[in-house]
Design a binder for these strands. Structure first.
Lengths: 237, 237
DNA sequence: TGCGACCTCCTTGGATCCAATTCTGGCCCG
DNA sequence: CGGGCCAGAATTGGATCCAAGGAGGTCGCA
């Protein structure tokens, strides 16, 4: 995770802009793993010198998005397939704990936010079911927000940060992996149950649902098939 | 965590040297929280230009050791007291899982390494008991190695990395916090039990011992007292 | 023809200079 | 006497230039 430097007011460092942009490119797979990144080229594309580009690349490397080999070059980091399972295992650990804590404190604002996020997701999903084209990217984003909202509500910034970090790297892998419509439906059911568990302050239930939710996604990802929905379904967890 | 750039052979980048050195200074509290860091000064101290210093600082910021405010300066990051509890809570989660996994696979090399580390710690501790001056720093380092060894043996690099990251930040806080001789003794008992649990492949026991071990340390740290041993005892977990 | 050494080009690492911004201290005015 | 404003100094951000190291191609030799 990057300790973001405070961007106060109108002064945006080229540094930050480039970091953000390139990171985005990597997450959306516009810059695929193994893609070579040259400072010169980026500098040209952004209309700046190599200096801010270098800063951005150093940060990207520090955050695990790219890999620098001295005097040779920088490439978008390749992730081994096994890492997917690892990441999801750790996410299951951290996020189930977060869900439990969230159920324990159960603040009204947390619940209403989760309800709203889930409601929007259901709308989009149902629209897709009734013939509309699935806004998969939108669903994926909302899903991420849902998980992040639970992490935030556990009142442990360290836990939140550790898990967020893993989520981002995870998305870096599974964005193009497809899930079936059934799997997405099950995922949304999980979210529903999660909200209910938190609502009823059932710490243990919340933990178990979250763990099951994430390990389920892990299992789906492990049997790398192409999915029965479209060709562009996105991660469900 | 920093994705360390491969330092192949004899070519060491000034970049890396400075990062390592400053990070070390922060961990040993030679550079206390809130300490201002100027590129110019560091450059002078290391006999290089500001360029590699800037790279190092960017990495340090990315790894959460310092905080950059644009055009203003860089300071060693201050950690709120509450973060200690947070970090130990998450460590308890991650490392107990690692201990369980370690007990599950139970490879001979893992056990012998742990035995050896523990043996050395006992020697130093006993020497201190019989009148010798306690090598607190040495004990602290061995303790860190012990925990890292368990993390390594769980065969999940992601888990290891997440936990290591937290351990380092933790040491950043509690290096000067003192533990009593009794507490250090209890901590070593925990390690002993941990080895036994792993030896007998008792996954659940290993998990519980580790969790208790870390939460115990968390509790000790929370009642920030000065301790009954010397004035320089170090973290026990 | 295959292997190895060398050489050139490409890319990054570091140094230095200039620009932009923010902080500080002093001064003026109310 | 206090607060706000302005200017200078200090410090970081960015640009450009030069150096160092590595990868790939080519030529020569066995």
């Amino acid at each position: 995770m990057t300790t973001r430097t405070k961007k106060s007011g109108p002064s945006i460092r080229a540094n930050d802009r480039i970091y953000e942009e390139v990171r985005n490119g990597i997450l959306t797979k516009r810059l695929p793993p193994g893609q070579k990144i040259t400072e010169e080229l980026l500098a040209e594309q952004f209309g700046v010198s190599r200096t801010p580009v270098r800063s951005a690349i150093v940060r990207l490397a520090s955050d695990g998005f790219v890999e620098i080999t001295p005097h040779s070059g920088t490439v978008v980091k390749r992730r081994l397939p096994g890492e997917i399972a690892e990441i999801y295992d750790v996410r299951a650990l951290l996020e189930s704990a977060a869900a439990g804590l969230c159920a324990d404190v159960r603040e009204a604002k947390d619940l209403s936010d989760l309800e709203q996020l889930h409601g929007t997701m259901e709308e989009i999903f149902n629209a897709a079911m009734t013939g509309g084209t699935a806004q998969i990217e939108e669903l994926s984003l909302l899903n991420k927000r849902f998980h992040e909202r639970i992490l935030k509500s556990c009142r442990n910034a360290t836990l939140m940060e550790s898990a967020s970090r893993l989520m981002e790297i995870g998305f870096l892998i599974n964005t193009y992996v497809t899930f079936s419509r059934e799997e997405i439906g099950r995922s949304m059911d999980d979210h529903r149950k999660l909200i209910t568990a938190i609502q009823s302050r059932d710490v243990h239930w919340a933990e178990c649902v979250m763990r099951s939710h994430i390990l389920g996604a892990r299992n789906s990802l492990m049997k790398d098939r192409v999915g029965s929905l479209g060709s562009d379904a996105a991660g469900t967890c």
